[in-house]
Amino acid sequence: MNRLRRYGPGAAVVAIPLGLALAGPFLAGEPSARAASFTLGGGHRLGTDFVGRDVVHQVLLGGRPVVLVALAATALAYLVALPLGLISALTHRRWLEEVLMRPPDVLLAVPSLLMILLVAAAFPPGPVGLALLVAFVSIPDAARIVRAAAAEAASRPAVEALRMQGESWWRIAVGYVGRSILRTLAADAGIRLTGVLYLVATAAFLGIGVAPDAADWAVMVDRNRTGLLIQPWAVVVPALLIVALTMGGNLLVDAALQHRTPPRKGRRP
């Protein structure tokens, strides 16, 4: 009961886009014949898009690339950022910290979209390439957050006490510091997922990693913009799904992190 109340809202919000993204392609079936662009009705429940395709069909197909690329990119970014941040927070060798944290700092100075455009111009990527690219530009931010949070935890007496006990680096870094910064990281991961979704969507918008007429929520939002006033569903539905995905993800993370807190104040006499 309590669990339901805690995770219910987040799960409900995230279930729709995630369900559509994962199961959509199986439900979509064969595409129907093309109709006129930006029409409403005529057997198309959400109307047609800029090239006259059925919007429902496109929505069902368009979730998978966005969601998979965004999730993969976020996970990849943390896979690199976590060790980078933890090592540089726990070392007492300044040069090691410099070697680990300076290159991402340089990367941070280049606007991430510019970076994606530059690399994409040289090596046109597919979806996998796009995930790698977005992960790459997200590493500096994530690494800095990890390092800052870990540096605070690593300076606590508890870490010195663990060292005094001769604990291994692994136990200290993962068992204590990693665990202490979990809340910060989870909150950051929620935000980062949103940012990554934005990047993936923007890249799709610019035609990187996806064909310009691909079934992709982000591409849909962009391409159907022109008909927004005639046929809003082709923009509103995919946009709402993206919003629901990020918001639901944030709600879930928050719920998971929330400790059970009793009412803040007692009654006054």
Partner: peptide, 14 residues
């Protein structure tokens, strides 16, 4: 100060 711990049941008078 009228401050009590979280979830406290208070009787008596201040």
């Amino acid at each position: 100060l009228g401050e009590y711990p979280a979830g406290a049941r208070v009787t008596g008078e201040v």
